[in-house]
Nucleic acid binder design. Structure first.
Lengths: 119, 119
DNA sequence: CAAAAACTTAGCCATATGGGTAACTAAATG
DNA sequence: CATTTAGTTACCCATATGGCTAAGTTTTTG
């Protein structure tokens, strides 16, 4: 362990996805793309920020698989891929289910205990 | 704009929440807490990592409102608050709904166009 | 073909993040 | 009461992140 082979910065898909969502600018971009594909400049317009800075956000969204981009002449068109959000939803749903299950088991247990107490 | 008043590191709730979820260790902690409250050390055990490092993750989860902690003697008990995950779910659901709506409108449009073509 | 438009590349900067050690405090325990 | 146990505090370190400017490149356009 003398050398840390640590190339560690959340490279798994879910982490990339949640990280992509953890920024208002990027969420706004996703929001904007829900209406359909748009060029980078159109997306950037509302975001008082230099283009290169904005581009990094686009790259992150692309890196997380949330969008793809293709070049059409000098314009780079961004297209949303909402399916990519699915793994985040799934993770949250599974958590919710497990929690509900826990509460159910708790209720069942309390029920059973109440029964025993009666007898 | 000479001075950047930029105290900017995603301080909004949603960003804090998504950021909290963007790390495997923290997601594992949430997972572990779905069974019920646990002390820090119990949570840390599976995570080959020094305690102080692990504590930072706990702090982040607490900062995002995902868990609360209380001290019981020398032990710090961590408790999950799954409701806190709701805003993330809501954001994703709203995105999904808007996307579905878009597809519906597209279908309607194609339908209408087909009708016109027939006449 | 000159100029504008739409990125791109390259580099800089401050702060945040994820990890670590060392040393300390406070509560249980033998 | 001496020792463990369970955190906690106070740093340090490398890399990532989010922003910037300056200087390209490649298409359009006038």
């Amino acid at each position: 362990m003398l050398l840390s082979l640590m190339a560690n910065t959340q490279h798994d898909t879910l982490s990339l996805l949640f990280a992509a969502l953890a920024d208002p600018t990027r969420r706004a971009v996703i929001d904007a793309l829900l209406d359909g594909p748009k060029p980078v400049s159109a997306l950037a317009a509302p975001h008082d920020m230099a283009l290169p800075s904005f581009l990094k956000h686009v790259d992150r969204l692309e890196g997380a698989g949330v969008i793809t981009t293709r070049k059409d002449g000098r314009v780079r068109l961004c297209q949303l891929h909402p399916e990519a959000l699915g793994s985040a939803e799934q993770w949250l749903n599974r958590a919710r289910d497990r929690w509900a299950g826990k509460l159910d088991r708790l209720a069942a247990h309390l029920d059973a205990t109440a029964q025993e107490t009666k007898q």
